[in-house]
Amino acid sequence: MAETGSVYDAISRRRFLKWALGFSVVATIAGVVVPIIGYLWPPARQSSAGGGRVLIGATKDLPVGQAKVLPVNDKPAIVVNTAQGGIKAFSAICTHLGCVVEWNQSKQIIQCPCHDGRFNPTTGAVISGPPPAPLPPVRVAIENDQIYAGGA
């Protein structure tokens, strides 16, 4: 009896509510302040678009005459294994209106699905269609049968 009484004395309802309110206020402030401080702190990677190179995959997974479209430093790129020029990579953003280009397996060309712009997979040059400029090349490196794209 005396014990339970002492427990109730130790944490009165008023005191409990004060703690609950204080905790809510502190948690709310922390929920606002923590993201802001995290945001102000410079991110680990210094830049995105000019960032490091990205591992695309093994050379055996990309036989001659095939291509892959995949993100390289947050932007779509097309990596193609050409019969004439070996493995090449280009920005996959069509220079016409910014659609993401595709690989046309039967015609062996890079083709934009929006307005049928066609590009040479070896040079990135425009074959036909509305694009005003060739696809910008993306740097490719092959080390230990692994394909890397992007980077300086």
């Binding site: 995290g38 945001y39 702190w41 991110p43 990677r45 830049s47």
Partner: peptide, 10 residues
């Protein structure tokens, strides 16, 4: 893109 993908809480 940098804000959305790299910056903490960006």
């Amino acid at each position: 893109l940098f804000i959305m993908n790299e910056v903490n809480f960006g």
